[in-house]
Design a protein around this nucleic acid. Structure first.
Lengths: 224, 224
DNA sequence: GAGTGGTCTAGACCACACG
DNA sequence: GTGTGGTCTAGACCACTCG
């Protein structure tokens, strides 16, 4: 457009005013109707733009209270969770996969509150990139959902996304010290610091709990 | 409304169909106009709902190509980046802060491509929770932006959010092994595995590069 | 009570990508 | 070319909350 009345233009203008401190932290900014008139667009367009900034944490909006620039902005970062094989391919490496263990076991104590008291299917597997250890997967599965399924060639990760409906869950990063097993699998030394990612997935009941431990030096990047 | 034609209702119905595999991975779903008619709402309402799902990675939309359920969904996780002090307070602990070093230094080789060749202000500080080491901050600042500013009482983190305009940047998680200095500051043993977060911030030029190394056991949680 | 954002509608035009 | 999503508009009503 010529006049620049797209919602992205409105968002950019708002962003400019925030950055330039025309709208300073703590300030209440003009309401949607006023901005719409000033910028020559419909209120819905202003709404779209300001909602976008609010989702990013750069504005706080409340009915009746108006829209404010937060004093202590809580920015949100997002990162994509891809299938590990795709992750490796995206790095230009050749992915590999090998199952190390696959048994029905009693649920460990710490997992029972999340996945029930019954026995769980415990699968451990190694993902490789160009033949080298990339990531060790330690997974506990609800056995009912994966009855008779083999994970020898297709990783549990990929099988799940293709065969179990989308679900909710939680995810956490932390650091672990390489045990002897981890060190062997990932080709590092015992005690090395490794990045780990725990993920818990629920649908209409518990689905899986998994810990991925990455080879030394691995970084998980997010967009701000 | 009675019939329940809000965009969230449309989103929930779409989600139900995805989960129930009425719309299976790879399928193309009906276009907006058809869904609007079927569900008895305006096309804009359907658009809002499907756009929301697409942003979450549960649908793929392309002009002319229509909307599809992705074969390999790339879910997006988001986590909030708060000020460290608020982080500690949210855990019900008493935050503390102590500057360990604050000098102008030549930029290290690896940082020059990102922050220029000139000298940088190098600030190291320890954040504590209930008196115990919580997080060690190793920060390099564009000296022009923080000329004459003291970080003795207010952390650079907080000063920046309050005094430098919002900016873009990158963020990455990885694991580091505790050096002797880290071990002393965080009250752990040398070689312990620690979670680290690198953040780079740019505005109209480089602003800061910072590495936060957390005490052992720290987890960063994200919502899926 | 009243002001503000949240949302819906019906219609319109545009931009892109596929055949 | 043509179908699909992307967006804008003008108006309306609703829901939350602040005073």
């Amino acid at each position: 457009m010529s006049g620049g009345t797209g919602w992205q233009d409105v968002r950019d203008e708002a962003l400019r005013r925030i950055r330039a401190r025309i709208w300073a932290p703590g300030d209440r900014i003009p309401d949607e109707a006023a901005l719409a008139e000033e910028l020559g667009c419909a209120r819905a367009t202003v709404n779209r733009a300001l909602r976008d900034l609010a989702e990013a944490g750069l504005l706080e909006r409340r009915r009746k209270g108006g829209t404010r620039v937060p004093l202590t902005p809580v920015r949100k970062a997002t990162f994509s969770i891809a299938i590990i094989r795709q992750d490796i391919e995206a790095r230009g490496q050749v992915p590999g996969y090998r199952v190390l263990g696959d048994r029905l076991e009693p649920a460990p104590e710490w997992l029972r509150s999340r996945m029930g008291d019954g026995p769980l299917r415990h699968v451990t597997a190694l993902h490789t990139a160009d033949g080298a250890g990339f990531c060790l997967e330690d997974r506990w599965l609800n056995p009912v959902l994966v009855e008779g399924v083999s994970f020898e060639t297709l990783s549990a990760n990929e099988w799940l996304v293709g065969n179990v409906s989308f679900a909710e869950g939680t995810l956490a990063f932390h650091a672990v010290s390489a045990t002897l097993d981890l060190a062997r699998a990932l080709g590092c030394r015992e005690g090395d610091a490794l990045l780990a990612l725990d993920r818990e997935t629920r649908g209409e009941g518990p689905i899986t709990w998994v810990r991925l431990v990455y080879a030394p030096g691995h970084r998980v990047q997010a967009a701000l």
